[in-house]
Design a binder for these strands. Sequence first.
RNA 1: GUGAGAUUAGCUCAGUUGGUUAGAGCACUGGUUUGUGGUACCGGGGGUCGCGGGUUCGAGCCCCGUAUCUCACCCCA
Length: 403
Amino acid sequence: MIKSLRGMNDILNEDYKRFTYFINIATNVAQRYGFHFIEIPLLEETALFKRSVGESSDIVGKEMYQFIDKGKNDVCLRPEGTAGVVRAFVQKKLDKAGGIHRFFYHGSMFRYERPQKGRLRQFHQFGVESFGVDSVYEDATMIMMVSDILKELGIGYKLQLNSLGDNNCMPTYRNKLVKFVKECEDDICDDCIKRLDTNPIRVLDCKNDKCQTLYATAPKLINNLCSSCENDFSKLKNILDNNEIKYEIDTNLVRGLDYYSKTAFEFISDNIGSQNAIAGGGRYDRLVEYLDGRPTPAIGFAIGIQRLMELIVMPETSRDGYYIGAMDEEAIDLVVSLAHKKRKTDKVVIDYKVKNFKNHIKNADKVNAKYFCIIGTNEIQSGNIIIKNLDNKIEKTIKQEEF
RNA sequence: GUGAGAUUAGCUCAGUUGGUUAGAGCACUGGUUUGUGGUACCGGGGGUCGCGGGUUCGAGCCCCGUAUCUCACCCCA
């Protein structure tokens, strides 16, 4: 038997219902915020991700489905969505067009990782990206959107917030931090020593207890922001307070991808295992420029759909549509015709086999039909059809032409 | 890439110290005087016990290897 590849799952039945339920709600919210759908390729040039996500990240360093195609192009399956949307934004010259451009997308992402709870090799994200707005109100709006989506789904969360500084204050802070960490270099873990070279800020979210103890007195990003970043950050907190969105400041929250600056946020759930980030995002004002566009402020977030699906409780489903069954062999053709007619407007389930009343009604119950019709020689002769409402057990007889 | 646990029917799982023909519940399918009520009762089909070696008179059970799944590390959504 041929089986699906490791970490690549089929979505069907109950899962598919939850999946589409989420997509519909998230799409509605995004549209209410004035965002437009964008569909971008699953396959892109490898260079796109190297330049945006960053070679220091694990995603690019070891998790990409990368290969040389038949035209000898170095390509890979997208490991995340933002890079592709920015690429499209620049390619369509929307950076030169000016103005505000707001997009949302959803689809498969691919990362070659060891699967576990809440982590697959092919997984789905719902994301939004906003271009051309440098106001911190847009940062708050992003967070409100995620909050609205989660609220509509009935999902509880914790929101963690940080500011990563900008081109002005981040490098200064980084030097300070490197200096601090180098002083205790002998006692930190091997990973942190590597991070000193590749991406020093990442030492802050090291999971090693010993490292964390040493870093307790490290300079905090949040105390080293320049006045513009500082103002934005306090305004952001202010907006969230005014709109009753709870958050906690996590000075060690460092997004894993290189392109973030200023606002960074993460939505966390306690109920889905160790992979507890259900949504993450932030500002990336320099990324458009990195990808050869005109400098354009931008911000976005992504939601991990599979992780959310574990938390979604579906509303109760009510009975829906018709079930039509045949009592006699010669009635089957009529059942098919009636179903064909009714299917122009309603869901109809039929059985091609003759069964007794009891078995038919059992089937109707099983497929959760609302109306139950039975066709036999009586109906063929009379031209009538009896429609029984399985919720309230009331029967109505009408002409077949009126069905 | 590293570690731990698991794998028996479509699903959830029993299976004694290694001993006849591997079980249950649910699901599927058929029936219970064949056109009026869903829950009841009776029957039926369905298994290369993940795969490959080994030990043994004999392996679902013990040993080795391997694949896959799950969880965790790492990292991230």
